[in-house]
Amino acid sequence: MHNVKHHLTDSLLMAYSAGNLPEAFNLIVAAHISMCDECRARAASFDSVGGALLEDTDMVDMEDGSFAETMRLITSGALAPIPAPICTAARGSVLPAPVRDYVGGDLEKVKWQSIGMGVKQSILPTSKDASIRLLYIPAGTAVPDHGHRGMELTLVLQGAFVDETDRFGPGDIEIADEELNHTPIADIGEDCICLAATDARLRFNKLIPRIAQPFFRI
């Protein structure tokens, strides 16, 4: 497990548990939980709230023959088979399992698209209410200074980045809202791979990313 310092908020975890997040946010939350047992436990405690509400809810009668119908469903083999659990940590992959599902494999399967100055992105297909992309930032490079109209979540998968607020390493998630205008810079040690989800279009304050001073701190 990673030594995670930056975690998800309660409202995101509750919305995840309730099933009310846009697909792109669901994906980044699932990816963070795959790397962070603290948030896995927090998410599970929010699931227990759902369990408690379910026990206490009203009931609606099932139709006659419903149980027999369910048994038929089980024995007919109509249900989709359960995929075998994958443990990416054991396999040494960079991408957590839920992200691998969207990419169709690990890093070598990602279809990168250059956005300038060595920075690459790959947009993952999700529902339209929010978007999510993988970002590849060469060591020491800055992502253009940008603000956000909505909320932006950035999860580090490899390497690290530093911005005006703090340093973010593998498993750390930065939650940025409209107030934050930031320039994330990839740490000098290693190329940085992040997953970034947003529910609005990014606003770039400059058109072209610039090479930042190499970062020797930390």
Partner: peptide, 21 residues
């Protein structure tokens, strides 16, 4: 039930964290 709700009612995929079993 929550996952079925997302799938059937909202027609979205529900990405799940890696399983620990």
């Amino acid at each position: 039930a929550r996952n079925r709700k997302i799938d059937a009612l909202r027609k979205q995929r529900r990405p799940e964290p890696e399983d620990l079993v």
